[in-house]
Structure formats: C-alpha cells, structure tokens
Design a protein around this nucleic acid. Structure first.
Length: 491
RNA sequence: GGCGGCGUAGCCAAGUGGUAAGGCAGAGGUCUGCAAAACCUUUAUUCAGCGGUUCAAAUCCGCUCGCCGCCUCCA
C-alpha cells in the first residue's frame, strides 16, 4: 500500500516517493496578513493540516513550513489608510490568524517564518538570478525576465503568447516584457524599506516563498501546497525563481485545494458573499466546520451554506452520540462474570469492522487524502457500534474489551483528522448550549411547564399534557421523556 | 478568445473498467397513553443527454447541453 497524490504539475495521481527516505518536507503558502481570514483560508489550512497529520501518521518525519507574508502592497495600503506603521497591521493580523487557527484545532507547523525575517535570503536569490541573467534591474526595481526561463507556465499549462495577447496585462514602462514580474520594488517615500544592492526597497510578492522554503527545506523538497488560485501566478513564479536560481527541481509534488463557494459562486468581497472565520465560528462549532470541510475531497469545490453546515453538524452529532454511549458503557459498567464469553452476532460484526477500520481508513487516505471516504468508513463503524450497543445489556468481558477497542480506534483515527478530540458528552452539551442560547424562553419557565405536564399526565389528562408539549415545541424546545423523567433540549 | 474542472437519489458526497460507500432529509419498525428523542431497517436497475470502444463503462473515446474556475490581488 502506498500513498498516491495528485500532482498539479503532472496532472495525475502519482505514488509518493520521498526525497529522503522516511522524511517529508512540506511548504504551504500561508497568508498575507492585512485582514481577517475568511473561510477559504480555513479550508486551505484545515486541508493541509490533515495532510500534515496523515503524513506523520503514515510514519514520515515531516517538516512542515507555513509562512506569514508580512510585507506586501496590501499591508502597506492598509497601514496608510489607518495611519499606522505597516508593522502594526502585520502583527495584528498575525495574531488574529493564530487565534483563528487555534480555534480550528490546527496542529502547529514545524516552522512559521515571516518574510521580513528573511530579507537577506531574498536579496541573495535575486543577486543569483541577476548573475545568471534571469533578472534585471530597472530604476530601483528588479524584475524577473520570464522569457529566460523556457519552462515558465509549466505548472498552469498556459503559453506566453496567449497570456500576452490578453488585454488585461498592462505594459509596465520599467519592464522589458509585460509578463515579467517584480522581485524587488524600490520604496516610495513613507513606505517601509530595507537596504539592497539596488537601493532602498522591499521584496515583491512570490520571492519570499522561494527564500523561506529554501532556508528550511532546501533547494528541492517534497510537497508545496496552497489554494488553486495560487497556481498562477504565485507558484508559477516561485518555480521560475527557485529553479532559475538553483538550477534544479524545486518541488516534487504540487498540491492545490479547491475553493469554497457561496451558493455555488466563488466567495469574493465584491459580491458581498464573504465570511470571516470569526463570523462563522460565532454561529457554528469549530469542529463542525472542520468536519464539513473534510466531508468533501480537498480538490473539489465545496458550497458553504447554513443548510450544509447544519447537515454536517447532524452527522458529527451522530458520531459523538455513539462515542458518548461507548464512554457511558465503559465507565459505568462492571463486566459480568458470565461463563459464556462468546460474541453475539452484532458483536461479531463489530469485531470485523474493528479489524478492518484502520486498513480501510488508510486505504482511503492513501488515495490522495480522500477524507470523505475515510469518514464514510467511520460512519459504517458507528452503525455497527450502535447495533452492538443496542443489544448489549450486561456486557461480557469480551464485549467490554471490544467496546474499549472501538473507542480507542476512534480517538486514534480522529486525531489524524483533527476530530473527536473533545469529550463526547461535553461536546454534545456545548452544542446544545449554543442552540439554547438562541431560544426566547427562560429555562425556569420550561421547568415549570414540565412539572405541570407531568402532573397532568399523572392525572391522565393527556390533552393538557400534549398542549404543553406542543407549546414548547413551537418555541423550539424538544421534550425528552425517559424512565428517569423528562428533560429538554433546544431543537 | 486560451486553459482547466464539474454534472451521481430531495439535498450533500465517495466511487476513474467488473456490476452504485457514507451523511442529511424522508418512510417503516422498536419504544410510548399518543408522540418526540434515540436506535434499527429502508430509500438510485442507475450515474446530464446521444453515439462509440469493450465480454464488461458512472468510470475510456467523440459529440451535444448545462454549470463553474483561472487567465488581475486572492486559500
């Protein structure tokens, strides 16, 4: 069994062969820190989080680098608009990014470098590119000459002639070719700057990723990831820079995640269909968002909507309910000393599911990180577990040990997906509490009505009892009758 | 215009040659005074349409229709 990954460069699924046996180097384009992150960032980061986790689970010693681009036109523009230093903006949104990612339960990358800590490396690469004839200085700027790199556009599979024919490419006066891109930009008055052989200035977009990836992963490394929209121009330009400077292959496997759509359209500020991670997490549990993201393959577009998030939450509740039931059985139950320790049919089925769980999960994830299929395998196990729990009264030692094994497997595989890390009972209670916050009736009133209903029912006045039940249901309160009495939850 | 992707049940979504995973919703059952909740069971002779290749196609090829993305900053 081997990991196969879809490589944007070849357009095919390929068997992963690490550059160095047993190790995996992975660079993911982080964020340009000029604003709060939106759910598209959430998807990209969650997707690469589970790729990172899975590579580690599969036994690789992974070095995961995710950068902050903390110097850029957009940051400068925002700083000017607010009348503050660019650093204020960058630091504010670095902090916000870290908060958001922590709430989403992301594992920390091995290194999280900042572009401004690597100006020296950036200048070094630019000097090499100039020395090799790939770049030229022009009035304090330095540009990459794309026609000196024959393989330019090999990732996005376009051709220069068509691109140049496009009306939207403006001919910059300082550029020799309209497709050339900036490696270094001379600073205008009031802008942040660093000294360089070409005067005071700052790096262009793209070059920082070449510098930081080389610093931490070397000239050639295994995985480079990012959103699909980074294929051109960002990653294309990184290839030109790194391969142009180093004369060797830059990245072995290029991975790109699909977009998040809103009502089937790309999310964008101009359309006004834009959600930040913070806004979404005010309404939905972070794990629900993660579960939603993982319920589709990472390269497919996903459609973000309240309905789809609600559906995802229902699915996740199903799993957590099952885990809560397992926990209850394991915590409260003493094994019987029944001499008959054989497994019932449901237990035998669950035993088989348990045996197959890891192999099937691995098979799904080995197939280009197919988390949707992996979740399907987990759901099948949930059903078997529920069936088993339903018929297990006083469990035999064998049944208890099977239950414990299933519980352990969910924790183990859940940690690969970044799911099920919460205590099931606590998670279910928290989701419940969040729903309760949205109802407009006081819990004391609910309790009072429940008592009144119980008395009515005791007196066989079912009409009055049902009235109360319907009244509460209208308010979004679901009554739960059981042998122990009546409880309620928000619907 | 150039390049790329997608179209699987009411909705979401796996499946890229061997006879349609899974989730949500719905229906039936257990339970209940009746319900709800929970759990169980069940739900596509068929994969946008039409042709073709093959013993065999949702999966490969061609055409048609529909939707979307990139080509400008973007996860």
């Amino acid at each position: 069994m081997a990991l196969r990954v879809y490589n944007t460069l070849s357009g095919e699924k390929e068997t992963f062969v690490p550059l160095t046996p047993g190790k995996a180097g992975m660079y993911v384009c982080g964020v340009t820190v000029y604003d709060y992150c939106h759910i598209g960032h959430a998807r990209a980061n969650v997707v690469f989080d589970i790729i990172y986790r899975y590579l580690a689970y599969a036994g690789y010693d992974v070095t995961y680098v995710r950068n902050y681009t903390d110097i850029d036109d957009k940051i400068i523009n925002r700083a000017i608009k607010e009348g503050v230093d660019y650093r204020t903006i960058a630091d504010r949104y670095i902090e916000a990014f870290d908060e958001d990612m922590a709430r989403l339960g992301l594992a920390k990358p091995t290194v999280e470098p900042k572009a401004t800590d690597h100006i020296g490396g950036i200048i070094g690469i630019i000097e090499t590119l100039i020395a090799k004839g790939h770049a030229y200085e022009s009035e304090g700027d330095v540009y990459y000459a794309v026609d000196t790199f024959p393989e330019y556009l090999k990732l996005s599979k376009r051709n220069l002639e068509d691109m140049q024919a496009g009306a939207r490419v403006e001919i910059g006066e300082k550029k020799r070719n309209p497709m050339d891109f900036a490696l270094w930009k001379g600073s205008k008055p009031g802008e942040p700057w660093w000294n360089s052989p070409w005067g005071q200035g700052r790096p262009g977009w793209h070059i920082e990723c070449s510098a930081m990836s080389m610093e931490f992963l070397g000239k050639t490394f295994d995985f480079h990831g990012g959103g699909k929209d980074l294929v051109f121009p960002h990653h294309e330009n990184e290839i030109a820079q790194s391969e142009g400077a180093n004369g060797c292959q830059f990245v072995r496997y290029w991975l790109h995640n699909g977009f998040v759509n809103i009502n089937s359209e790309k999310m964008s500020k101009s359309l006004g269909n834009f959600f930040t991670i913070r806004e979404v997490l005010d309404k939905f549990d972070p794990e629900t968002l993660r579960f939603f993201i993982l319920s589709a393959h990472y390269r497919s577009p996903i459609d973000f909507s309240d309905q789809n998030l609600d559906d995802a939450q229902s699915g996740l509740e199903r799993i957590y309910s099952c885990l809560a039931a397992l926990d209850a059985l394991l915590l409260k139950t003493e094994p019987t000393t029944a001499p008959d320790d054989s497994l019932t049919p449901a237990a035998a089925d669950l035993q088989e599911k348990a045996d197959q769980l890891v192999p099937r999960f691995v098979e799904a994830m080995d197939d280009d990180f197919n988390s949707a299929q992996a979740l399907g395998v987990l759901f099948e196990t949930v059903r078997s577990t529920n069936r088993f729990l339903a018929e297990t009264g006083a469990p035999s030692p064998a049944a208890l040990s099977l239950a414990a094994r299933i519980r352990q497997l969910f924790s183990e595989l859940g940690s690969v997906l970044g799911l099920f890390g919460s205590g099931p009972a606590e998670w279910l209670a928290a989701v419940q509490a969040a729903k309760t916050g949205q109802i407009d009736i006081q819990p004391e009133d609910i309790e009072r009505l429940i008592v009144e209903r119980a008395e009515a029912r005791k007196a066989k006045d079912f009409k009055r009892g049902d009235e109360i039940r319907d009244l509460l249901l209208e308010k979004g309160i679901q009554l739960l009758d059981s042998a122990q009495g009546t409880t309620w939850k928000a619907k």
